[in-house]
Design a protein around this nucleic acid. Structure first.
Lengths: 203, 203, 203, 203
DNA sequence: AATGAATGAGGCTTCATTCAT
DNA sequence: TATGAATGAAGCCTCATTCAT
């Protein structure tokens, strides 16, 4: 489990979980506003509702907070999509439904997505690898559905690339909102992107 | 002109240009490695080949360096694509040529693209707007070509969205290289993405 | 209260008072020696008996230290005179006693007085106004006594000017010591100035 | 001569005088505004009408500028009073005339006087002694006149102290203007102070 | 477990002075 | 003589982390 990767002085595992959740919530709201580097540990402690001393009872370094935060965001995304996958009975309909749901999810988590794009680089190699694996897992899931439910049989490679495209097209709704959200509503955006996608996989 | 937005103590404009170019070169190589926040002004001065005092003769604050750097990257991209546009005689062939050239360019500028994704947020509103306008201009150019040379007439909105998709598909070659470059060579990636694109614009 | 005008990170108000008092003591001894501008914050921290980090837990900027210091000096002066005023029963005797005590006080606080003359200008408008008001209050007190106990009735304006003269004649014992203390002992100086003063207020 | 105490690279003595006069004029206006320490050598060069390089052709260190400036102010004061002394035929009338003229002079030179009070301390011992001697000389002159023209014979010591009082009462019109100039016009101030002075020396 | 005062390395920036032209 | 670009020591301040209570 993710949180086990971070050492805490406190023994009570439930408490650790609770405090870290407070911490993540505080950190996300601060990182949205000013980014990881411009946010101080004191600010995080305050936003989490406890003292700087307490903060350090539950983590070792500031980077630990970034890791917990980034990981939590990936979990939010995963939790937000997984329920929509019908892995037993894949179908184009289900695929489209998954994609649309994913785009709605990204719209909800815009700022969180931005944090990923800006701060993952600041993680050290090992933890970065760990969180990127989560992304890989999700892409792989989507790839499988694409592969199995297209009307026409796609190559694995095409499916893999299309899965990546979909993922990034979701993200770009967040990180290019300064241009996209001026021109499209979310629904328009979804319709168009799904439309393009269908042209590719059909026929 | 961009550099006029940053105040320098030095009067000789040629020298200012020269020193700032040294600076940008040094900064890019450092930002690639460790990002803006973890790079110190002293390191930038050293990498630029002059003293910290000299550095501050040519800028006012560290953020000025980020602005100059980000702006220079956008210029590199612009200079790298513009020559390929044949605006007098738009054609599908030219469009495909532009797109392929752009993907090759992105491959060359991978690290620079990453800097954009990670650090533009650290610019203050005004300068951020300024550089984003450059991106908008490029997208608009591509949009026009897409609009005029499709075999089938596209709507302006479709063209706009497709232009954005192309741009981001370029970038993602850089920012998702941990996943894409494991599965595809650059040429394969280009072939596939262009193939998808053609499916969309050709009926 | 004065110290409330300066923000501290530390919550314990007693501790804030204690640390700031250490700070003021250290700062005064340094400012006496080399003035505000030539004294570094590190020197002040060291002279105060704590680290630079701790120093900044109790103030926001170097100028805050100057304000605290200047204000403390004004307080020293006020505390040094006020007890001598017999406001219920004003009399020439009491007036003379006050003046003499004040001159002795100035002799004790020579260096501190010099700090006022040299550094108050470096305070920003608002805080400068604040400390000058303390001086005004003291002058006004003296003015009242002069007005009420002269053998001959003085005009308010004469009393006001005489109060200022007395105050400055005290200060000048400090800031012109290079000339006055070569020619007079403190007692001689007091006798003469008081003598002159009496000539003015008596007929 | 004063300026000989400061070394210059330039040989032409007339030029040295000219450039230094420009420099003093620039420096005074800057010191009035922001004080010696907050004024940079670059600003002084600019206000003087030449480059930082040229500035350093005429002085050795920033402190040299302070010395030249302070000395020039003392000279202004001296030149402003001396003509009024009638040393051959001392008289009370002449004395009063001198004092009044001096008070008017101080009114003209208020800001310059403030510079003296705030910055003389920043001179190194030797140069400080040098300029203070100029003040001593002026006081001594006044002392002699007081001694010789009183209706009643004063002691040398009384005369010396009165001379100092007059001098400082002039200065205080400048350095306590925040309180005095709210209550008195210059003429009222002069009348009152001269009135007090006459009460002391007559009778 | 929780607190928050203390620490000091290190970052950004300024500016007096020099020196090649 | 005049210029102004270059220098780097040094100043102010921040902030991640520790530790005694």
């Amino acid at each position: 489990m993710t949180q086990d990767k971070i050492v805490s002085n406190v023994k009570d595992q439930e408490l650790v979980k609770k405090r870290r959740d407070q911490m993540i919530k505080g950190a996300i709201s601060l990182f949205k506003e000013k980014g990881f580097h411009k946010t101080t540990t004191r600010e995080i402690a305050k936003a989490s509702g406890f003292s700087i001393g307490t903060l350090y009872e539950y983590i070792r370094t500031k980077e630990d907070i970034l890791f917990l935060t980034v990981d939590a965001i990936y979990e939010k995304v995963r939790e937000g999509i997984e329920p929509f996958f019908n892995l037993e009975h894949p179908s184009e309909d289900n695929l489209i439904h998954v994609i649309k749901s994913y785009f709605h999810l990204v719209d909800d988590l815009q700022e969180e997505i931005l944090i990923l794009y800006q701060e993952v680089k600041s993680l050290k190699k090992e933890t970065r690898e760990y969180v990127l694996q989560k992304e890989r897992d999700m892409v792989y899931l989507l790839e499988k559905v694409i592969l199995n439910c297209g009307p026409k049989q796609l190559s694995e490679e095409d499916a893999a690339l299309l899965a990546n495209n979909i993922f990034v097209q979701g993200h770009m709704w967040a990180f290019r909102r300064w241009i996209l959200q001026k021109q499209f509503t979310l629904e328009e955006y979804i319709e168009k992107q799904v439309g393009f996608f269908l042209k590719i996989i059909r026929d």
